[in-house]
C-alpha cells in the first residue's frame, strides 16, 4: 500500500543563514494494505514533515513514495492533489475542521475533490462516529472529542487506501483519547484502510502491535 525509498527533505533555516538543513532522510519504509502501524517520535523530530511528504502536501527533494502502486513523487502537483483526494485520509492533531462549514459539509469536503460527493455516505459515517444528530452544527458548537470524531469521519469518507494520523489524540484527555483511537482503528479496519499513526504518547502506542521508532527510521536523527 505504501512503499517509500531514499526519501529526503530539507528546508532553508535562518539559524544557518539560509543554508538548507535536512529534516527527513528515510532510506526505506513500507506499509501493507490494511496494516496499522504506529511511529514513535518526539516533537520536532520531523514526523509531520514525513507525513506531509507521504501525503504529497510537500514535495520531496529526492526519493520515491508509492501509494497504492502509484509513484507519487513522479507526479505533478495537481496529480498529487488528485491522488491525495482519492486515496488518502489525513487526521490532524488540531483536527483542522473548517469553522464556517457545518459538520456534514466538513465531511462532504473530504470527498469533494476526489470522486465526488456522496451525501448518504457522509451521513452514514457521521452516524457511525456517533454524530448522526449533529449534521448541521458548526465545529465550534461541538466538544473537542466530537470535533475529533468529525475529523475521523472526514478522513475516512472517501474510502481511502491509506489513513495518516498525526498525533490524533494530542488534544484530547485520557478518556476521549482512548475512545478516539479505538474509533480510528476500528473504522480503518472496517474499511480496509492502512493506518500510519505518529505519536509520542506511550498510552496510544501501547495499543498498536507494530510500533516503529521514527528516530531509527529517519537517518537525520539516528
Amino acid at each position: 500500500m505504501l512503499d517509500l525509498a531514499d526519501l529526503r527533505k530539507s528546508f532553508p533555516a535562518t539559524e544557518t543563514g539560509g543554508a538548507r538543513v535536512e529534516i527527513v532522510r528515510v532510506p526505506a519504509f513500507a506499509l501493507g494494505a490494511g496494516e496499522q502501524t504506529a511511529l514513535r517520535g518526539e516533537s520536532g523530530s520531523g514526523k509531520t514533515t514525513f507525513l506531509h511528504l507521504i501525503a504529497g502536501i510537500l514535495a520531496a527533494d529526492s526519493g520515491r513514495v508509492t501509494v497504492d502502486g502509484v509513484a507519487m513523487t513522479s507526479l505533478g502537483e495537481a496529480q498529487r492533489d488528485r491522488l491525495r483526494a482519492q486515496k488518502l485520509g489525513y487526521i490532524f492533531q488540531t483536527f483542522n475542521l473548517l469553522q464556517g462549514f457545518t459538520v456534514l459539509e466538513n465531511v462532504q469536503l473530504g470527498m469533494a475533490f476526489g470522486g465526488g460527493v456522496d451525501k448518504a455516505r457522509a451521513r452514514e459515517l457521521l452516524g457511525r462516529v456517533g454524530l448522526g444528530h449533529r449534521f448541521n452544527h458548526f465545529p465550534n458548537q461541538l466538544s473537542t472529542g466530537q470535533q475529533q470524531r468529525v475529523a475521523v469521519a472526514r478522513a475516512l469518507v472517501n474510502r481511502p487506501k491509506l489513513v495518516l494520523a498525526d498525533e490524533p489524540t494530542g488534544n484530547l484527555d485520557r478518556v476521549h483519547s482512548r475512545a478516539a483511537l479505538e474509533l480510528i482503528r476500528e473504522v480503518c479496519r472496517e474499511s480496509g484502510a492502512a493506518l500510519l499513526l505518529v505519536s509520542h504518547d506511550e498510552e496510544v502506542l501501547r495499543q498498536f502491535d507494530r510500533v516503529r521508532e521514527f528516530g531509527e527510521l529517519n537517518e537525520v536523527t539516528r
Binding site: 502536501i57 502537483e77 495537481a78 488528485r82 482519492q86
Partner: peptide, 16 residues
C-alpha cells in the same frame, strides 16, 4: 490562509 490550506490538504487543486 489556514482554511485554504485545509482545503488543499483535502485535495483541492490550486486552480480550484
Amino acid at each position: 490562509r489556514r482554511d485554504l490550506a485545509i482545503l488543499r490538504s483535502l485535495g483541492a487543486r490550486r486552480r480550484t
